[in-house]
Design a protein around this nucleic acid. Structure first.
Lengths: 245, 245
DNA sequence: CGAGACATTGAACTGAATCAAAGCCTGTGG
DNA sequence: CCACAGGCTTTGATTCAGTTCAATGTCTCG
């Protein structure tokens, strides 16, 4: 799915950084968008485009992940980025060896020239305020993951993760009839939740045998959201975007 | 340590939200500060003061923690708040049963009227931009905790946590000669790192026997930062505040 | 048809939890 | 000045959730 030439027509805009912008302000933002770009499955997001430092990007379509590698070769997936995600790549730029962002499926990116967008943060106050809100929403997800990994057992952890992912996509309008597109392999789930791939497999079987989920051909089917939410204490509250004032 | 009546003289200001403000802008912020307040050890931060919703606070002195409780009674500590921390309490306000902020020592707070500060976010663009940067720095710490809990064993996890805490205080200018004030009990460490208190005890002994640390009378002494950093792959890069543009 | 990538299963092992007692301060009151 | 109560810390023994190791199965694609 290619991004349109004009940001005004963009379908992910309402979930992204540029939600509350007036038509005039949106025009300014459009100027900062230097280009669009496809990152192929398995590749890392660019930290530079055309020789310019490009700290800012929006995921227009596809799935990506923010990664951290430890010195013993293990990988921790810190977050999954879905359409609409606004990425400030400056952190990865500064710590490129240990942190990076990688495409899980092919990803369409809108790339913004760092210095141009920074200018807008000053001239369009609501933009900076929206950025802060977006980062806070991201933070809420991270905090819930922390509770997940720190205090829930493997089965609940996985159940919670699947419910969260389903709900995020639903809020983005990408779920129909309790089914979502789900490109993750068991290794991704293991790396995100701090488990071994074999144990993920066993626990997924458990959830399958309870008739709560079914995963086939990269489609995740949620068969009993209520029972599952109850089981792992999932409450979607933390996923609701907080109002931008 | 009481906050001064005038924000211009505040010693934590350089680490906090109001770092880059001009004298005039600082005056505006000062108006939004409705009062200061002491939260006693063990008590929760206020979500209301004088009947007003007070979503914003700065920790002027003392230690606090952001908590999440799960339905089975377990607690996950999501973050420790140190002097200079800027707190947007709106999330806790909306999810008060499950999320809250609690004082570990007596804490001096500066409290801001939500609506007044929001106004300044619009009129003083750099303020909103700074907020976004602060939240991003917080996020970096959270991400590192995720890697910590997800992929490091208990001993490394604790070593990493102690190094992080020491470094954060050092960056704030609160460390002298490899010693910091350290009010945490073993239960706090357990709840932050997803371990049992007994295991925390055993692993602390291990670190003590290696002559890496010593904890006495609420003082943490770092005896061999180099060896310990090496052991647990600690790299302070993620703690450096990112530049506010 | 064969190769490679991913998923699945089983058995043995282990890091950390749990359960159960002591030990050790610190402050309080007789 | 001593006793003792309560909150933390320490230690040991046992158990268990989750890892590791080792195959085997299955799907897809050239």
């Amino acid at each position: 799915m290619l991004p349109p030439a004009n940001c005004r027509q963009c379908i992910v805009r309402r979930q992204a950084l540029f939600t509350p912008l007036s038509d005039a302000d949106l025009g300014k933002v459009q100027e900062a968008r230097t280009n669009t770009r496809c990152v192929k499955e398995g590749n890392r997001f660019p930290t530079q485009v055309n020789g310019n430092v490009t700290a800012y990007m929006t995921v227009h379509s596809g799935w990506a992940m923010r990664c951290r590698s430890l010195e013993d070769g293990q990988v921790q997936i810190l977050a999954f980025l879905l359409p609409g995600a606004f990425v400030d790549g400056s952190f990865e730029l500064a710590n490129g060896d240990q942190y990076w962002i990688e495409a899980i499926t092919d990803v369409q990116l809108c790339v913004f020239a760092g210095h141009k967008l920074e200018t807008h943060f000053t001239h369009v106050p609501v933009l900076a305020r929206t950025l802060a809100s977006l980062v806070q929403n991201e933070e809420a997800v991270l905090m819930e993951h922390l509770a997940d990994i720190g205090r829930r057992d493997a089965a609940k952890r996985i159940a919670h993760f699947l419910l969260e992912t389903y709900t995020r996509l639903k809020l983005l309008g990408h779920a129909d009839e309790n089914v979502i597109f789900f490109p993750l392999h068991q290794q991704h789930i293991a790396d995100a939740l701090g488990l071994s791939i074999e144990h993920v497999n066993r626990m997924l079987r458990e959830l399958r045998e309870r008739q709560w989920i079914s995963i086939k051909h990269h489609r995740l089917h949620m068969l009993d959201i209520e029972a599952m939410s109850d089981y792992c204490d999932f409450n979607a509250g933390y996923l609701q975007p907080r109002p931008i004032l």
